[in-house]
C-alpha cells in the first residue's frame, strides 16, 4: 500500500490538495448558510492535511504527519466553537443565514 502511494508523483497530491482547497474556498465565497461555511472550512483544512502527509511520505519524515494530527485536533476544536456560534446565530435571528446579521458594519 505504501509502495503504491509512494509511486505516485507528488504533483498529483498537490493537485488534489489544491482542488479540495478551491472547493472549500468556493463554498465559503458563494454559500450563505453557516453550516456550509463550517464544512467548507473543514475541506480547506483537509487540503492542507493532504499536503502535510504527502510531503511526509515524500521525504520520509514523520513531522508532517504529526502536524496533520495537530490540524485534525484543531479542526475538532474549531467545529465545537463554530457550532456554538451557529446556535447563537439561530437563537438571535431565527435562521443561520450569514447575510442576515450585519450589525457589525460601520
Amino acid at each position: 500500500m505504501a509502495a503504491v502511494a509512494a509511486s505516485i508523483p507528488p504533483q498529483w497530491y498537490l493537485l488534489l490538495a489544491a482542488g479540495v482547497f478551491s472547493i472549500g474556498l468556493f463554498g465559503i465565497l458563494t454559500r450563505s448558510d453557516a453550516l456550509y461555511f463550517l464544512m467548507s472550512v473543514e475541506l480547506m483544512m483537509n487540503a492542507a492535511n493532504i499536503n502535510f502527509v504527502a510531503f511526509s511520505l515524500y521525504y520520509g519524515d514523520l513531522t508532517g504527519q504529526v502536524f496533520a494530527l495537530f490540524v485534525i485536533a484543531l479542526a475538532a476544536a474549531e467545529v465545537a466553537i463554530g457550532i456554538g456560534i451557529i446556535l447563537v446565530l439561530y437563537r438571535n435571528f431565527g435562521n443561520i443565514d450569514v447575510t442576515v446579521p450585519t450589525e457589525m458594519r460601520w
Binding site: 450563505s32 461555511f37 450569514v98 447575510t99 446579521p101 450585519t102 457589525m104 458594519r105 460601520w106
Partner: peptide, 12 residues
Amino acid sequence: RRIQTGLVSQYA
C-alpha cells in the same frame, strides 16, 4: 469605513 459591510462573505 463603508467597506465594513458586516457581511461575512464579503470579508472572506
